[in-house]
């Protein structure tokens, strides 16, 4: 089986779409965070595929940066989860609506 850049783009697009769907529809804040991680992972897949296709190392270096940002984002998001749970005793994103306009 011959794999070209398009196969990579399709897989990455589908992974991103699944993560996007999760962010849109899940009510549990933890699962929303996990879906964001899925989207970041899909972006990394694109970086690696184009890095290989162009024979350029920059894509690999930038996916290391994306992983760094993902780690920081997960730490902050989970701290927010704990803070939300302490104040509201829930993880439902629909109940955190104090700033609803």
């Amino acid at each position: 089986m011959t794999i070209t850049i398009n196969h990579y783009l399709i897989v990455s697009l589908l992974l991103f779409a699944v993560g996007f769907f999760g962010v849109l529809v899940r009510r549990n804040f933890l699962t929303v965070l996990m879906s964001i991680e899925l989207m970041l992972n899909a972006v990394n897949l694109n970086f690696i595929a184009f890095s290989r296709r162009l024979s350029d190392l920059t894509g690999q270096v930038f996916s290391v940066f994306v992983i760094t940002i993902a780690a920081g984002e997960a730490a902050i998001g989970l701290a927010l989860t704990i803070s939300l749970f302490r104040q509201r005793k829930t993880l439902n994103v629909e109940e955190a609506d104090t700033m609803r306009g």
């Binding site: 089986m1 011959t2 794999i3 070209t4 850049i5 990579y8 290989r52 296709r53």
Partner: peptide
């Protein structure tokens, strides 16, 4: 344009 061929592709 092929990134992977043969067994690696599968």
């Amino acid at each position: 344009g092929a990134l992977l061929t043969g067994t690696a592709g599968w």
